[in-house]
Amino acid sequence: MRWEARVLVRLKAGVLDPQGAATRSALESLGFSGVEEVRVGKLVELAFQAPNREEAELRLAQMCHKLLANPVIEVFEYALDAGREGSGCGLA
């Protein structure tokens, strides 16, 4: 059966995020004062086949550990849903 997942990959707390820092100062200069912190991460959307939720969750966790996130600098979290057959990623 088809599963759809959203994986959110973020830099670990404490790891310097130059992109976040630049975005924060850009927001400041646009007049959005009081922005205390900005962290930039990435969202990975995927659709895949797995026989049941347990298996799907296991495979997803492996994908995250092995490739989608680098444990040295990143953490991840995900949301997993049963998807519709034949749809696109359907996550937008």
Binding site: L11, V15, L16, P18, Q19, N70, V72, I73
Partner: peptide, 17 residues
């Protein structure tokens, strides 16, 4: 080499972006 774990650590974007 870092991603493969042959050496420790990871690379972030340059401070200047």
């Amino acid at each position: 080499l870092l991603e493969a774990g042959l050496l420790p650590g990871a690379m972030l974007r340059n401070r200047s972006l």
